[in-house]
């Protein structure tokens, strides 16, 4: 009997200790975001560069498949991953399916993937590629004049930029990655779970 009670007490103590540790490590920190630890830019995300200071995202526009004008402000309130791609860019074509899967897995009212095609011929070229690549979770977005891509200073393809809920640039990656893998999802979740500064 005694023995059994002792076991229960010890077990309860252990549970309390674990919960306490978890709370300390993962729990909300009132002081700053930095208290959550460094963003997990490891593995597939090792080339993801976090901006020193979050600057406002672009005000330039792009269009959807129907010609409707879109801006980054349309996504306010969501963490947004903007990927620039082109039909002539082999690494882009290689990573696009994983970008589509990322939207399938994480997309919702907290997070959205925006893939913008920069082919000069616009929809005529982009749409067949999007269909062949089975990008069915992604909207077709077009920037044939390079307004938005120039606006955010894309020089290397592919370039992928992450914006926070307020439209400020968190960081960006030049070059391809497997975006549907755990490294990428951890990084996305890190910012999706970021407490709003307001």
């Amino acid at each position: 009997m005694n023995k059994k009670t002792g076991g229960i007490v010890a077990g309860a103590a252990a549970v309390v200790a674990v919960v306490a540790v978890v709370f300390v490590v993962l729990g909300p920190d009132d002081d700053s975001v930095a208290g959550r630890g460094d963003p997990p830019t490891v593995g597939q995300m090792q080339n993801f560069l976090i901006a020193g200071t979050r600057l406002p995202g672009p005000t330039q526009t792009w269009s959807d498949g129907d010609g409707k004008t879109i801006t980054l402000a349309d996504f306010r309130g969501k963490v947004v991953l903007v990927n620039f791609w082109a039909s002539w860019c082999a690494p882009c074509l290689r990573e696009l399916p994983s970008i589509n899967t990322l939207q399938e897995d994480l997309g919702g009212d907290q997070f959205e993937v925006v893939a913008i095609n920069i082919d000069q011929q616009g929809k005529r070229v982009a749409e067949p590629f999007a269909q062949r690549l089975k990008l069915d979770a992604l909207e077709l977005y077009l920037d044939p004049r390079g307004r938005i891509s120039r606006g955010v200073g894309v020089q290397v393809m592919p370039t992928t930029i992450l914006y926070d809920r307020d439209g400020l640039e968190i960081g960006r990656m030049e070059g391809p990655a497997e975006w549907d893998q755990v490294d990428s999802k951890n990084l996305m979740r890190f910012y999706i779970d970021e407490p709003s500064p307001s």
Partner: peptide, 10 residues
């Protein structure tokens, strides 16, 4: 022109 390796740069 376009040049590519791991990435592409127009």
């Amino acid at each position: 022109f376009l040049t590519c390796q791991e990435t592409c740069v127009p």
